[in-house]
Amino acid sequence: MSVRSILLVEDNPQDEMLTVRALRRANVANRIEVVRDGQQALDYLFVQGEFADREAGLPTVILLDIGLPRLSGLEVLEQLRANALTALLPVVILTSSDEEQDRLRSYEFGCNSFVRKPVNFADFAETVARLGVYWLATNQPPQEN
């Protein structure tokens, strides 16, 4: 069994720092891979482009922002679901948006969870910590990689 890991797709370095810090403080010791945009996310997952050389394997869960450069989070989600390899991969949308449209479309495209980033730091930290613990420890993924 490979080590469970998280793929964080986040273009904002500050949010990335805060997210990683919150996960670490919640004693999540798993590997956290960070990519900055939608295309990078796809490259990473399908081991292609700049990630063509990386060791194969899928993360346990993806934390996916919606507003991303190049390819938006929703487009990434759509492509993941269209590919048999990643069709069942747990994807959590983690976004600042509380637009009903975004929420609806995320679920239509098959996200497993939709979480709004709270502005309040304490709330944010707690939310991320819970996410990490839930998806890495509590939830049983469809397949082990």
Partner: peptide, 21 residues
């Protein structure tokens, strides 16, 4: 309004987050 909801929130979260950190 859409942009405001996303783009203004991120720096705020950073300000709030890092001062708390």
């Amino acid at each position: 309004a859409y942009a405001v909801s996303h783009d203004l929130r991120a720096p705020l979260r950073a300000m709030s987050g890092f001062s708390q950190a």
